[in-house]
């Protein structure tokens, strides 16, 4: 019997689910190994639970989502969050630094129609998560590795070390040392393949904090490179604003 796969969406942009569809060649092999039982982005055919593997995209930002994740957890043997939103809030978690009612009155004509939570939270604040796959969006190769590890009953080979190690293995020249470009690589988890440094840009921290992020020491360096407190506060507050290490560092530089 094939294992059943479900893919769920919460508050998110769908980019991570698209990474799954983007697997193209491997998608057919994946479909051979796993029964795609629930994946609205790909098919409207829905099979009832329980599911062996649930991939969850997006963060919890409405009362409805708060209830839904409990139900999904109870229907799933393994639950893996995919992407920055599900793992550390995503861009929508930026509202956690302000009062959501202020946004509502500016954005919506009838704010009273909107039912939302004060704070956006990662999935792990609500239910037990078996594995968190990082990235904004996730990396296709890493996603396949997670599926693969699940099928072969082993731990996924997903390193938690800095992006710098990936950058250096790729033979790239450090943009911080050689160009003076601010880069979050040293405090960011590897996984993207050092995409931005390969284009002469600093890392934006899409994969969230690495295993032991020394954000304070890096922030000092960013300052030396001419970044203002406000800029430093903002640079730690992009896609992973709810990740504790980034959040704390960001708050330290808030003016």
């Amino acid at each position: 019997m094939k294992k059943k796969l479900a893919v769920w969406k919460f508050s998110s942009c769908d980019g991570c689910q698209l990474s799954l569809l983007d697997c193209e060649d491997e998608l057919l092999t994946l479909a051979d190994q796993l029964e795609i039982a629930y994946f609205l982005e790909a098919s409207s055919r829905i099979q009832p639970g329980p599911y062996d593997l649930s991939l969850v995209e997006g963060s919890v930002s409405t009362p409805h989502e708060r209830r839904a994740i409990q139900e999904i957890r109870s229907q799933s043997k393994f639950l893996v969050t995919i992407g920055a939103c599900a793992t550390s809030g995503g861009i929508q978690a930026l509202r956690n630094f302000a009062d959501v009612r202020d946004f509502l009155s500016v954005v919506y004509a009838r704010p009273d129609y909107i039912e939302t939570l004060d704070k956006v939270s990662p999935i792990s604040q609500h239910v037990k998560v078996d594995f968190e796959l990082r990235g904004c969006p996730i990396n296709k190769r890493q996603l396949l590795e997670v599926a693969n590890a699940f099928l072969n009953k082993r731990r996924p080979n997903i390193p938690n070390h800095s992006l710098c190690m990936e950058c250096k293995r790729r033979g790239l020249v450090c943009v911080t040392v050689a160009h003076g470009t601010p880069c979050l690589g040293p405090v960011t988890q590897a996984g993207c393949g050092a995409l931005c440094p390969a284009y002469n840009r600093g890392c934006y921290g899409c994969f969230g904090p690495m295993e032991t992020p020394n954000t304070a020491a890096l922030a000092q360096r960013l300052k030396d490179h001419g970044m203002s407190s406000q800029e430093i506060s903002r640079v730690f507050r992009t896609f992973n604003a709810e990740a504790p290490a980034f959040k704390e560092e960001s708050l330290r530089h808030e003016e």
């Binding site: 070390h161 710098c164 250096k168 040293p186 020394n214 020491a217």
Partner: peptide, 13 residues
Amino acid sequence: GDRCLTCGNCTMV
């Protein structure tokens, strides 16, 4: 230890 980022660059180079 307070200054080190544990980024591993030193070992890579």
